[in-house]
Design a protein around this nucleic acid. Structure first.
Lengths: 137, 137
DNA sequence: TATTGTTATACTCTATAACTATA
DNA sequence: TATAGTTATAGAGTATAACAATA
C-alpha cells in the first residue's frame, strides 16, 4: 500500500513529464503553454483569475502574460465595466501554438498506446476512471 | 477504447498537476529533494551520473550539489581510482530531510489511494508497469 | 585527445514588498 | 478601505561557453 501510492505518484509524474516534452516549439516554455491552454479552454479572463488558476502570485503571472503579449500570443484589453481590470485573451497565433502542441501530445500518446497489447490496453481502460477520480479529488 | 489515449493523457496530466500542486515544500526545493532521493536509492555516485539521471547539465547539477553540501545534506569525496572524479553521497542529515519530506509530500496521494477499494487498488497495481513503460519510451 | 568537474554568465519562473489607479 | 494590476528586487534552477586537472 505504501509502495503503491509512491510508485504510482512517481510513474504519473514521469509520464506527464515525458508528455510535456512534446510541444509546438522549443522556445515556448511550459508555464506559457499552460496559460495558453487556460485561455483556450476558459476564455478571456483577468490576471487574478489566471494567477489563481495556476496557483502563482499575480506578479509572477503578470510576467508570464507580458512575455505572451510580447510574442503576440495573447492580448490585454481594458475591462469597460471596471477600469482596474485588464482582460487577457489568446490571439490567433497563440491558438496556433496551443493547438499544435496539443496535436503533438495527442500524437505521442496515441503512438505509444497503439504499441501496447490488447490486455494492456484493457488494464489502462480499467485504470482510467480511477485515475480520473484521483485527479478530481 | 477509441479515445483511450486522449482520456488517459488528460487524466495523467491532470493528476500530475494535482500532485505537483500538493507538494507543500517548506524548507527544501524539488530539485534538491530529487537528488537526495537519487542518492538514497542509487547510492554514492559522480556528478555526471547525477546529471544524467536528472537530465540536467553538469553545471546545473553542480550548483544543486553545492547547495546540498552547503546545507550539510550531501558530501563530496575524491575518487581514489580516478582523480578527476568526486563521489557524492547523502549524509545522515540528508537522509532525515529526504524521508521526512517524502512523508509530508505523499500525504495527499496516500490519503486518496487509501480511499480506494481493494479491487481498484489491484487495477492500479496492474496499470503501474504499463504506465512506467510509457514513461520510459 | 577525451573525460570530469568546475566557474562565469545569462535567462526563466518564482516570490515578497511597495506603488498606482479604481471601486 | 479594499481590490486589480503593476514595478522593483531577489532567489532558485536551468543553460551554454570556457577552463583546469586527469585519463
Amino acid at each position: 500500500m505504501a509502495e503503491l501510492h509512491d510508485d504510482l505518484r512517481i510513474a504519473v509524474m514521469r509520464l506527464a513529464r515525458r508528455v510535456r516534452l512534446e510541444r509546438a516549439a522549443d522556445d515556448i516554455t511550459d508555464a506559457r503553454l499552460s496559460v495558453l491552454f487556460v485561455l483556450l479552454g476558459g476564455g478571456p479572463q483577468t490576471l487574478t483569475s489566471l494567477s489563481e488558476h495556476e496557483r502563482v502570485t499575480p506578479p509572477s503571472m503578470n510576467r508570464t502574460v507580458n512575455s505572451l503579449v510580447d510574442d503576440g500570443l495573447a492580448v490585454r484589453t481594458p475591462d469597460p465595466d471596471d477600469k482596474r481590470k485588464m482582460i487577457i485573451d489568446i490571439t490567433d497565433a497563440g491558438q496556433d501554438v496551443a493547438l499544435e502542441t496539443r496535436r503533438r501530445r495527442v500524437a505521442w500518446f496515441a503512438d505509444h498506446v497503439a504499441e501496447l497489447g490488447d490486455d494492456e490496453r484493457s488494464v489502462l481502460e480499467a485504470a482510467l476512471p480511477i485515475l480520473r477520480r484521483l485527479a478530481d479529488s
